[in-house]
Structure formats: structure tokens, C-alpha cells
Design a protein around this nucleic acid. Structure first.
Lengths: 237, 237
DNA sequence: GACACTTTGTGACGCGACGTCAATAATTGA
DNA sequence: TCAATTATTGACGTCGCGTCACAAAGTGTC
């Protein structure tokens, strides 16, 4: 009984160890560069043992992506509590997106891999469900901020669900950071300050919807900066 | 001399034939599913012959992506000529983005592959240059519309280059279509009409910048629809 | 402590994919 | 016609994924 639980704990821990070992390989060498053989060698276990924990390589990547997604969700949740002002709450989430994409580049990159059909489809149904749930919760946090803003009268939604409203900001920040991360040289095409320009677009978009309280871009920018500093990057358990 | 040129023409043609054969495989089976062995078999040439034309698999993918990018650029150029009204010219480009991402899904998907570091880095310097040039030209078309709008007094740019201004709209449409294409079920998260909602966000963003002439969303939506119909999907030579 | 039984670990193997290269065939020019 | 150049071929080396028959370790009972 005692040894049994020790053995079982050992096995459970190993799952985390595998992921901890795989993450840097995945980040450094990309999806194709993550090799089950090398991973097994570095873990000092046989390949078969890895396959006792994960049915295939994609499942490992999906597990890592879920961890990253969890981190982002955490950051969103924290960000949503940093102000009473509804508009600033939304800005805080924007700041979280920025911080995640820039300071947690690796996590952003790993999360992005899930959007590859091959990886998504080979992941287990169960893991897919966990991921969907996590994404749903992240969306819930942001949509909640929007709902609160509407309830407070700070924002009037046109014929659109709060989620569709959020979708616009999501596309804006997501799209920009994908472009930033994958366009070797935006400056060469004339985009010198991509991050600042996206802040400006976000600010303008909020103005376009008349989200109260209005504020100058300078104030908004300063505010984003302060909010970003107050968002902590959660620790993986 | 006569036979020489015939042989040479045959070889040049073959490059196109390879690409024409590779595209459906790439679209159907994804990057990993495109196999040089199978491609060689289907072409009824030996694998070595393929490698006389393309130094590696990535170069084939990059060549296909360049074709797709060219198509998009063409569509942008045509779109930019469909109206005299500066705001509608920008809307036409938005319509082109929509049409490209939805009706030319395969092209959009192939173009997206270029954003994978592994593919980009293994492509030849020369092909990279062609791609960069094409992207630059596409950006030039859109930035040109913005510059014209400013010159006409329809739009006042804040402290931002036209390219940075475009970058916002680019992020919005690009991001949304990546999300649409790769999120199995946006409706499950409450996003029921993603395309329409992005049109609305785009409209709001333009309003936020005070882009003249202002118009109701209904009119704008109708206009986008009409413009989209007038954009033709270019033919690959 | 011995013994049957279950769980866990192992790595050689099959398969398929990429890219190479020495040998072969075709083409060219004189 | 024939040598020289160019194009084509496909077997081969290497690597990676995932499997599976076998070995080892752990577990519970007498």
C-alpha cells in the first residue's frame, strides 16, 4: 500500500517531468525538432515508457499547449480584477495579451501549434475537451467584463453578442502578435512600432463604440503600461 | 538549337507541372502529408528529377505560397480600383480579404504555411526575396489607398505611418480569419457570426478614425457585398 | 520466504519519409 | 559517327514515429 502509492506518485510525477523536459526542446527546435527518441534518451527512459504516458507526440504538444493556455487564462483573470473602471478592465486584458505574447513568447508559440489541424486532430478527445473548456473560460472572463460594462451603462452594444464583440479585440491582438512573431521584418514594410500602433487601434476601436470613460491616448497608453506591470506571470504547478 | 529549346521548354514547364501536382496534395494532406516519394510517383518521374527542380520540400511549399500570395496581391490591386470613394476603396480591400480567406481557403492556408519558421528558413534566399517583394507590393497598394484618403482630406492620420495604420486592419482581418479557420467551433464560445462581426468592427474602427464619408453599417454592409461580387479571382498563369 | 500474477519498463523492429549520389540514359555539337 | 555534356534514375543512408514480444519489478497470498 505504502510502496504502491509511492510508485504511483512516481509515475504521476514522471508525466510532469516529461513535459518539463519536452517544453524546451519544443520551443528550441519546433514541432518537427521535438524527437521522441531524443526525449527518451534525455529522460533516461526507454521510448516505450514515454508511450505509456502519452499515446503519441501530438498529445505531448497538446498537453504543453494546454499548460500555456492555462497560464494565459490566469493572466486574464488577474487582469480583469485590477480596476473598477470597466474600460480599464478591458485595457488590462489587452495588456495581458501583450505581456503574454511578448514576455511569454514560448508559451504563445506553443499555444499557436494547437491551431495546426494535424496536432489538434491527433490529440485525445479528453485533452481536446480540456482545451475547449479552458478557452471557453478565458473567453468568459473577457465577455464578463463586457457584460459588466453594459450593465454599468459604460458601453452600449450594437446587435452583437458580448462574445462577438470580444472576438474583434481578440482578432486584433491575436492577429497582430502572430504577424509580429512571424514577419521577419515588419519595419521593412513600414511598420515601425507594431505594438504601439495596435494599442492605438484598440483605443480607437473602444472610442468607436463609445466605451466610457473616454480618455486621451496618452493617458490610455500610460495606463496600459501600469496595468501590465501589475500582471504577474503565473507559475506552473 | 530547335530541339534544345524544346527540351528546355519541357524542363521549364515541368516546374509548373510539379507545382500543379503538389498543390492539391498539400491542400488535402497538409505539409506533413505532402510526400516527395508520392509526388514523384504521381508525376511519373524519379525523385531525383524533382530535386533537380527544387532543392527541398520546403522550396516547393514556398513556391506554392508565393503563387497564392500573388493571387491575393492581384485581388487587392483590383479591389483598390473599384471605387473613387476613398473609404469604399478601403472597404473593397477588406472585401478582398474576406473573399480570399473564404473562397480561396486553400490559398489562404498555403500562404499561412510560410509563417512557419521551418518552412521559411529552408526556402532559398531568392524565393524569400520574391515573397518579401510581393508582400511589400500588397502592403503598398493598401497604404496607397490610405495616402490618397489623407491627401483628399477624407482621413486624418494620427502620429502613425500609413503602413502602421494599415497594420491594424491587417491584424483584424488576418487574425479573424486565422481564428475562424482554426477554431473548430466558434459558435460554441458564443461567436455566431464571426464574419459579420468583423465587418462591424472594421466599420467601427473606420468611424473611430473619422474616415469620410460616414455611412450607416447597413449601407456599408451592402456595399461590401457588392464590392466582393466585383472582385474576380485571378487565374494562375 | 516462496510463488503465482499483475503491472511496468525495454529496445529492436517495421515502416515510411527526406535527400544523396554513383551509375545510366539521352542529348548535343562537331 | 562519336565524344562530351547534361539529365534521369532509384537504391541507399539516415532519421523519426509508434509497436510489441519479452524482461524486470512490484504485489499479495500462503
Amino acid at each position: 500500500m505504502h510502496t504502491l502509492s509511492r510508485k504511483q506518485r512516481e509515475i504521476q510525477q514522471r508525466e510532469q517531468q516529461i513535459l518539463a523536459m519536452a517544453r524546451p526542446m519544443l520551443v528550441r527546435d519546433g514541432y518537427a525538432g521535438l524527437s521522441m527518441d531524443r526525449l527518451a534518451v534525455e529522460m533516461e527512459y526507454a521510448k516505450g515508457t514515454l508511450y505509456n504516458h502519452f499515446p503519441n507526440k501530438e498529445e505531448i504538444v497538446a498537453a504543453l499547449a494546454l499548460e500555456s493556455l492555462e497560464l494565459r487564462r490566469q493572466m486574464f483573470e488577474q487582469a480583469s480584477t485590477l480596476s473598477d473602471n470597466s474600460r480599464k478592465r478591458m485595457m488590462a486584458i489587452g495588456a495581458a495579451c501583450e505581456k503574454y505574447a511578448i514576455e511569454c513568447q514560448q508559451h504563445f508559440a506553443v499555444e499557436l501549434m494547437l491551431r495546426n489541424a494535424i496536432i489538434w486532430e491527433k490529440a485525445s478527445e479528453q485533452r481536446q475537451q480540456l482545451i475547449r473548456t479552458c478557452e471557453l473560460r478565458a473567453m468568459g472572463v473577457v465577455a464578463g467584463v463586457v457584460r459588466d460594462a453594459v450593465a454599468l451603462g459604460d458601453l452600449h452594444l450594437p446587435e452583437m453578442t458580448p462574445e462577438e464583440f470580444v472576438f474583434g479585440f481578440w482578432s486584433l491582438t491575436f492577429g497582430s502578435h502572430v504577424l509580429i512573431a512571424s514577419s521577419p521584418s515588419l519595419p521593412d514594410i513600414g511598420v515601425n512600432q507594431p505594438v504601439r500602433s495596435i494599442r492605438y487601434h484598440g483605443w480607437t476601436l473602444m472610442n468607436g463604440y463609445g466605451w466610457q470613460p473616454l480618455m486621451s491616448f496618452e493617458e490610455s497608453d500610460r495606463c496600459m503600461h501600469d496595468l501590465a506591470e501589475r500582471i504577474s506571470i503565473g507559475v506552473q504547478h
